[in-house]
């Protein structure tokens, strides 16, 4: 995994986990890789992965079954979406808005683009 420069590693790992959940690679009630396994895979300090897992546990995305390990929480997908939504609104949207404003892109143009994007990407067979 390539880490980006501008965001704390533990948050980038959280995104990575969330991505897996949203894409359905990791499903509800399944066990996620142990802290050590994921640390080895991503070549990071296990304490960093631990911090990620604790964060996701707080967001009810993961649940910690003592002595067994971390599992995907029942409501994980919903909670991931909430979590990501907040993040998107807080972090990505301001940048996006800034570009809209600077480049003078109207909402109408944007809407058309958005609709065709959804059609092309998500409604294909």
């Amino acid at each position: 995994m390539e880490f980006r420069d501008n965001k704390a590693i533990y948050l980038q790992i959280a995104e990575y986990v969330c991505e897996h959940i949203l894409l359905g690679k990791w499903k509800a009630d399944e066990k996620v890789p142990s802290v050590r396994e994921l640390a080895v895979e991503l070549e990071v300090n296990p304490n960093t992965v631990m911090r990620t897992y604790e964060l996701l546990q707080n967001k009810d995305i993961l649940s910690n079954k003592r002595g067994i390990g971390f599992f995907i929480a029942e409501q994980a997908v919903k909670n991931v979406k909430n979590y990501r939504k907040v993040q998107f609104m807080d972090e990505e949207l301001p940048v996006f808005f800034r570009s809209l404003y600077l480049l003078e892109i109207g909402f109408e143009e944007l809407q058309n683009r958005y609709q065709s994007f959804v059609k092309e990407t998500f409604t294909n067979p």
């Binding site: 050590r36 080895v40 990071v44 300090n45």
Partner: peptide, 12 residues
């Protein structure tokens, strides 16, 4: 180097 990082991650 990548192997080293993996090994150290598991060694802690």
């Amino acid at each position: 180097k990548a192997q080293f990082r993996k090994i150290m991650a598991s060694a802690l």
